[in-house]
């Protein structure tokens, strides 16, 4: 199954996504990490996430850009967890300190759909960053708009779309196919 998981920051999205990816696994289980560490805080965050995944059976693949290249080193007949579209788009859209790729959202959305079509099972984590009362600058809003475009594109091709709020789930799509997996893992 293809599952999109979104919601606010520190709401338990990654934990639920890990359980779903593990629940879907019949053979190999991959964690596709997209974050490119910028400072010590990021390195510590990555280390913490890595420790949390210990013992779950994930093989970690680092793929901060060109997401489909992760398949070069993976068996496609497997269960994947991609965490997250947010970091992936940031890496693709802002490759250097003063360069911006405005075409990144459309390209990344297409690449993610292609990834979804090539693997047996996948859970993709995104971030819901759309309900604050801030008038953003043009570039930040273009990033937000781009991430929302990726979310909507993925929501259309995914079997299940979930919103996580502090560990609780709202199901926006795929209730029937999801219930069996839900009973198994949650």
């Amino acid at each position: 199954m293809r599952i999109l998981v979104s919601g606010g920051c520190k709401n338990g999205k990654s934990y639920i996504a890990q359980r779903l990816a593990k629940g879907q696994a019949k053979g190999r289980l991959y964690y596709v990490a997209t974050m490119r560490p910028c400072d010590n805080e990021d390195i510590e965050r990555i280390e913490r996430h890595r420790r949390e995944r210990e013992g779950w059976g994930f093989d970690t693949v680092e793929q901060p850009v060109d997401i489909n290249k992760c398949l070069d080193s993976c068996d496609t007949d497997a269960s994947f967890l991609l965490d997250s579209t947010t970091a992936l788009l940031a890496n693709e859209m802002f490759p250097g300190s003063d360069s911006v790729n405005m075409d990144a959202p459309a390209r990344v959305a297409g690449e993610l759909v292609s990834l979804c079509q090539q693997v047996r099972d996948i859970v993709i984590v995104s971030d819901y960053i759309y309900s604050d009362a801030i008038l953003y600058d043009e570039l930040t809003d273009a990033y937000r708009r781009g991430l929302a475009y990726i979310d909507r594109t993925l929501a259309a091709v995914c079997d299940v779309v979930l919103e996580v709020a502090f560990g609780s789930i709202t199901l926006h799509k795929g209730g029937e196919v999801f219930s069996a997996l839900y009973e198994k893992v949650l």
């Binding site: 606010g8 759309y130 309900s131 604050d132 009362a133 801030i134 008038l135």
Partner: peptide
């Protein structure tokens, strides 16, 4: 647009 779920803005108008 739902703008209710962010940090309280510094700008009094916002």
């Amino acid at each position: 647009t739902d703008i209710s779920s962010g940090v309280v803005p510094m700008d009094p108008v916002l």
